[in-house]
């Protein structure tokens, strides 16, 4: 069966949904562990912006600090997987356009991927 837009999009759709479900499951597990570990202490206050600790403010920080005893690190890992789903989608579209031999759209989707990777790793 030849690769066409519909087939590429169907695969992309399935991949996106799977990614979201995995991410949501990790966030949920992290959330349950976090709340059960906190007990009846008063709620967090988000009224004033303070930023987040260093291990939660970089991609490498999140990846390197995944720790089962610190549930918030699991939540952050789930969020990163979630953020990766649209990026993976663009990557899969590049593969799809390659299979369809549509050079113009290989270039267009590569441009989008470059912008996304720049934003994730370098944008200040």
């Amino acid at each position: 069966m030849a690769w066409d837009d519909k087939r590429v999009e169907t695969w992309v759709g399935i991949m996106l949904r799977t990614g979201v479900m995995i991410a949501a499951a990790i966030v949920l597990i992290g959330g349950v562990l976090y709340l059960s570990g906190r007990g009846p202490s008063p709620r967090n206050n988000y009224r004033h912006f303070q930023g987040e600790p260093a291990q939660y403010t970089s991609l490498s920080g999140v990846v390197h600090n995944v720790n089962l005893h610190e549930p918030r690190s699991l939540i952050m890992l789930g969020l990163l997987i979630l953020i990766a789903t649209p990026v993976a989608r663009v990557g899969m579209c590049i593969a799809g356009f390659l299979l369809e031999r549509d050079r113009m759209y290989v270039v267009v989707s590569t441009a989008v991927l470059v912008i996304l990777l720049y934003s994730l790793f370098f944008h200040k």
Partner: peptide
């Protein structure tokens, strides 16, 4: 993320 807007809890 880098600006600390993502508060996990």
């Amino acid at each position: 993320l880098r600006s600390g807007y993502l508060a996990p809890a």
